Every structure is written in C-alpha cells, then in structure tokens.
Measured scan of single mutants.
Amino acid sequence: TRVETATETAWISLVTALHLVLGLNAVLGLLLLRWQFPAHYRRLRHALW
C-alpha cells in the first residue's frame, strides 16, 4: 500500500505540474497575442462584449 500511495502522490504532482504548465502557456499565449495583434484583439473584444 505504501508503494501505491507513493505512485498516487507522484501522479498528483505530475498532473498538477501539467496543469500549471498549461495554464502558464495559455496566459503567455494570450499576452503574446495581445502584444502582437492589438487591433485584432480589440476587434475580437468588441465582438465578444
């Protein structure tokens, strides 16, 4: 059971790390998009709101 718990903890930390990386990538991607295409982003925002 100790090995199972260790594997579980490893999986949880792995999934958490993946989520963090994906979240960071999403934020960075959005920031890059805003920086690269400000006009396009503004138009998109007007369409959404």
Score class of each variant (00 low, 15 high):
residue 9 T to P: 06
residue 3 V to S: 02
residue 5 T to K: 03
residue 13 S to K: 15
residue 22 L to P: 00
residue 26 A to G: 07
residue 28 L to Q: 01
residue 21 V to Y: 05
residue 26 A to S: 09
residue 44 L to F: 07
residue 5 T to R: 03
residue 6 A to M: 05
residue 33 L to G: 01
residue 41 Y to K: 01
residue 36 Q to Y: 12
residue 2 R to M: 11
residue 46 H to A: 12
residue 10 A to Y: 14
residue 40 H to R: 06
residue 39 A to Q: 12
residue 14 L to R: 12
residue 27 V to P: 03
residue 23 G to C: 06
residue 19 H to K: 13
residue 32 L to M: 09
residue 9 T to E: 13
residue 4 E to S: 05
residue 12 I to D: 11
residue 2 R to W: 10
residue 24 L to N: 00
residue 1 T to G: 03
residue 49 W to M: 08
residue 21 V to R: 00
residue 16 T to W: 14
residue 49 W to D: 03
residue 29 G to Q: 02
residue 39 A to Y: 07
residue 41 Y to Q: 02
residue 34 R to A: 12
residue 7 T to N: 08
residue 43 R to W: 10
residue 29 G to D: 02
residue 35 W to G: 05
residue 47 A to F: 09
residue 17 A to N: 09
residue 12 I to L: 11
residue 26 A to D: 03
residue 31 L to M: 04
residue 1 T to F: 10
residue 44 L to T: 02
residue 39 A to F: 06
residue 22 L to C: 01
residue 42 R to T: 11
residue 37 F to P: 02
residue 25 N to P: 07
residue 34 R to P: 01
residue 18 L to A: 14
residue 1 T to H: 05
residue 30 L to H: 01
residue 10 A to F: 12
residue 49 W to T: 05
residue 27 V to F: 08
residue 45 R to Y: 07
residue 49 W to V: 04
residue 14 L to W: 15
residue 11 W to K: 15
residue 16 T to V: 15
residue 31 L to N: 00
residue 7 T to Y: 13
residue 45 R to A: 11
residue 21 V to Q: 00
residue 49 W to Y: 05
residue 15 V to K: 11
residue 12 I to E: 05
residue 8 E to L: 09
residue 19 H to F: 15
residue 46 H to C: 07
residue 3 V to G: 03
residue 19 H to V: 15
residue 6 A to F: 08
residue 16 T to I: 15
residue 20 L to H: 09
residue 10 A to L: 13
residue 5 T to M: 13
residue 27 V to I: 11
residue 15 V to Y: 04
residue 34 R to L: 14
residue 16 T to K: 10
residue 35 W to T: 06
residue 14 L to I: 14
residue 19 H to Q: 15
residue 47 A to Y: 09
residue 20 L to T: 11
residue 49 W to S: 06
residue 2 R to A: 12
residue 39 A to L: 09
residue 31 L to I: 09
residue 14 L to T: 15
residue 35 W to M: 07
residue 21 V to L: 04
residue 8 E to Q: 13
residue 49 W to L: 05
residue 30 L to M: 08
residue 43 R to V: 07
residue 36 Q to K: 12
residue 25 N to H: 07
residue 34 R to E: 00
residue 49 W to F: 08
residue 47 A to H: 06
residue 15 V to G: 14
residue 42 R to H: 11
residue 34 R to D: 01
residue 16 T to P: 15
residue 5 T to L: 13
residue 8 E to R: 12
residue 43 R to F: 03
residue 32 L to K: 00
residue 12 I to K: 15
residue 26 A to I: 05
residue 2 R to Y: 12
residue 10 A to R: 13
residue 24 L to K: 06
residue 27 V to R: 01
residue 42 R to W: 10
residue 26 A to P: 07
residue 9 T to S: 10
residue 1 T to Y: 12
residue 33 L to V: 10
residue 41 Y to D: 02
residue 12 I to H: 11
residue 18 L to P: 03
residue 17 A to M: 09
residue 23 G to E: 00
residue 13 S to H: 15
residue 28 L to G: 14
residue 30 L to W: 13
residue 3 V to Y: 10
residue 48 L to I: 10
residue 24 L to S: 04
residue 42 R to N: 11
residue 37 F to H: 01
residue 9 T to F: 12
residue 42 R to Q: 14
residue 22 L to R: 01
residue 21 V to S: 00
residue 17 A to Y: 10
residue 22 L to K: 02
residue 31 L to D: 01
residue 23 G to W: 10
residue 23 G to N: 04
residue 8 E to T: 15
residue 14 L to D: 13
residue 18 L to Y: 00
residue 15 V to R: 15
